[in-house]
Computed example of a mutant assay.
Amino acid sequence: MDSSKLLIALFVFQVFFPYHMSIQAAPENSDLFREYIGAEFNNVKFTDVPIDSNVEFHFILSFAIDYDSTSGSPSPTNGKFNVFWDSDNLSPSQVSSIKSTHSNVKVALSLGGDSVGDSYAYFDPSSVDSWVSNAVSSLTDIIQEYHLDGIDIDYEHFNANPDTFAECIGKLVKTLKNNGVISFASIAPFDDDDVQSHYKALWQSYGDLIDYVNFQFYAYDQGTTVSQFINYFNTQSSNYNGGKVLASFISDGSGGLTPENGFFTACSRLKSENKLHGIFVWSADDSKRNGFRYEKQSQALLAISH
């Protein structure tokens, strides 16, 4: 074969069998462990939580909310975020300290959450542009003050349609990343029609900017079995196609598949199929009561050669 034909043959081979195809297409396990902290004001500290040096560890401060924080009945502020987590115990200096002590730790903040005061916390923008402008400004201030690395989106109640939500959140994440303010972003949906319609719209338009899907598998019924959990996991992996969907449990045992009933069995099965992109827990505040035993077990599983 002369050299020109050889080059053509090589070119054809590369077109039909690109070198990186198998690498990109294969799902992969990860050693990522994430934990929400600070929503329940029970004096939990970063230093209370065991941190395995062989995992990537994200604390997620809960929550920053675009509501005013001073009045007895908080009201929406159109993207002007305030700190609603236990900032006495989870302060900027404590963030700096835990990150300097543990090089594998990053710290994020979560937006929204279920409630503020005694009421639901609504996503309630006046307009896309005004909300994004306010959110970029207020969150940049908080993120820089607290030395944070990323954000998580956990709105669960909406006074806006899915397209408006997608544009607001998508543009916020894009701007914060482009400005170098954050290095990662996640979303935290659960299996509810209204919730899913909003997050799937965001995923469709801006999924390439979302690094992790903290799917709230603990929002499924208490008593979920291992096989049900695997089915739920596969369903949500197709809903957020191409996303790193993390396995999750709630440490007060109130929903989903619990560690006592086979959560780690399910994770081991996902791991054997190269689908365990990480584990997250709601929350450190509740885990404090049981000595963080399942945080240790989660990290031990993730640390085994992934």
Rank of each mutant, 00 (worst) to 15 (best):
I151H: 03
K200P: 06
P162K: 14
N214F: 08
C168K: 03
P189K: 12
P189Q: 15
F215N: 04
F263G: 11
S227P: 14
G150I: 10
Y146F: 08
F190G: 04
D152M: 04
N239E: 04
D149E: 02
S119E: 12
D124R: 07
S183N: 12
S186W: 04
Q204S: 10
D124H: 08
T265I: 00
S248T: 07
T140G: 14
T225Q: 05
V173N: 04
L202R: 14
D149N: 05
P189C: 15
N261S: 11
V173M: 05
S183E: 14
S138M: 03
E167C: 00
E145Q: 09
D191K: 12
H198C: 15
K200S: 14
A188D: 09
S133R: 12
L172N: 00
A185Q: 10
Y218I: 02
V226Q: 11
G255T: 14
W131N: 04
S248C: 06
D192E: 13
N261E: 11
Q236A: 08
A121E: 05
V213K: 01
K244Y: 01
T265K: 05
N178F: 08
V226T: 11
Y220I: 11
Y212M: 10
A266G: 03
A135E: 12
A247I: 06
D129K: 02
Q144W: 01
V136E: 10
I230K: 01
Q144P: 09
F190C: 07
D221H: 09
C168V: 13
D194W: 07
V132C: 12
N214V: 11
A247G: 07
F233W: 06
N241L: 15
N261W: 03
N261T: 13
G242E: 01
V245S: 01
I210N: 01
F264C: 05
V245T: 02
L176F: 13
S197H: 15
F263W: 11
D163L: 13
D149P: 01
I142C: 05
F217I: 14
V173I: 07
A188G: 04
A135I: 08
Y199C: 11
